[in-house]
């Protein structure tokens, strides 16, 4: 039943210096569907692939707007993300109330990082089983942060987490140099292409299964879903909803 004696709780090290509970939590992130984030000089974009449990059900929400200036995309346990997002909403509101300023993204990221780390050091607690991409704009410009269940947080230029996200990261690494100078629309296209690269052979991006979140300098964070993203999908891929054949990439 147990892989070894050292994975019963998150406070015990294995003799190799690993904490298995934390590693298992990171596996939960890899089970979640893929999300991608990119920043340019002026914008931050999140793109997410939504999953539905069955044909008849609705799709699981992947992007959560937190404050007017930023939002998160999640991969992993959605219920853990809900807890974290509620905490982030509270902290964001508290910053506006006490300082009359939108909370800096580095600040909110380190606060959830601290919270997640605490869970890995107390007996009877468990790590969060969710990874987050935090994207938005604060007084210092657009930012993208990655959050992991271990409590590790990093600022990123571009990032992809979740199932098969290695393919998306490969796309992002190949086009890394273009992101900084990209326009809003170019950035969205890059995010969608990265997302598409991580899809299984028989899958397509559709208006049902795709979510976008965009924030920019002087532009509030907004989530785009459904019919709102039809045009982006159309212009990014030749046939986004075509039954047969792969959608081709369009040069920008």
């Amino acid at each position: 039943m147990f892989r070894n004696n050292y994975d019963n709780d998150s406070v015990t090290f294995s003799p190799q210096g690993r904490i298995f509970q934390v590693e298992y939590a990171q596996e939960a992130v890899k089970q979640g569907s893929v999300v991608v984030g990119i920043v340019s000089k002026t914008h931050a974009v999140l793109a997410a692939l939504k999953r539905n449990a069955e044909e008849l059900s609705s799709y699981q929400k992947k992007i959560i707007p937190i404050d007017t200036h930023y939002g998160i995309a999640l991969a992993g346990l959605a219920s853990d993300a809900r807890v974290l997002s509620n905490f982030m909403k509270q902290q964001s509101l508290a910053s506006r109330l006490t300082y009359d300023r939108p909370i800096p993204l580095s600040e909110i990221t380190s606060r959830i990082g601290d919270r997640a780390q605490t869970n890995t050091q107390h007996y009877g607690k468990r790590p969060y089983g969710v990874g987050l991409l935090i994207a938005g704009v604060d007084q210092k410009g657009p930012h993208l942060f990655e959050f992991q269940p271990s409590g590790v947080t990093q600022e990123m230029v571009a990032c992809g987490i979740g199932a098969r996200s290695q393919m998306a990261r490969t796309y992002l690494e190949r086009n890394l140099d273009e992101f900084e100078g990209s326009s809003r629309e170019e950035l969205i296209k890059h995010a969608l292409r990265a997302l598409k690269d991580s899809l299984a052979q028989d899958k397509e991006l559709t208006i049902e299964n795709t979510s976008l979140g965009v924030a920019g300098v002087d532009e509030n964070f907004k989530m785009y879903e459904g019919q709102e993203i039809a045009n982006w999908l159309e212009t990014t891929f030749e046939r986004p909803e075509g039954g047969e054949g792969e959608g081709m990439e369009v040069d920008s």
Binding site: T42, H43, G181, S182, S183, R184, E185, E186, I188, G216, D218, E219, N220, K222, Y224, E228, I229, A230, N231, W232, T235
Partner: peptide
């Protein structure tokens, strides 16, 4: 909230 709607995706220039 939305400086450019999805409609003008093709026409927008780099900001």
């Amino acid at each position: 909230t939305s400086t450019s709607s999805p409609k003008d995706t093709t026409t927008s220039k780099p900001t």
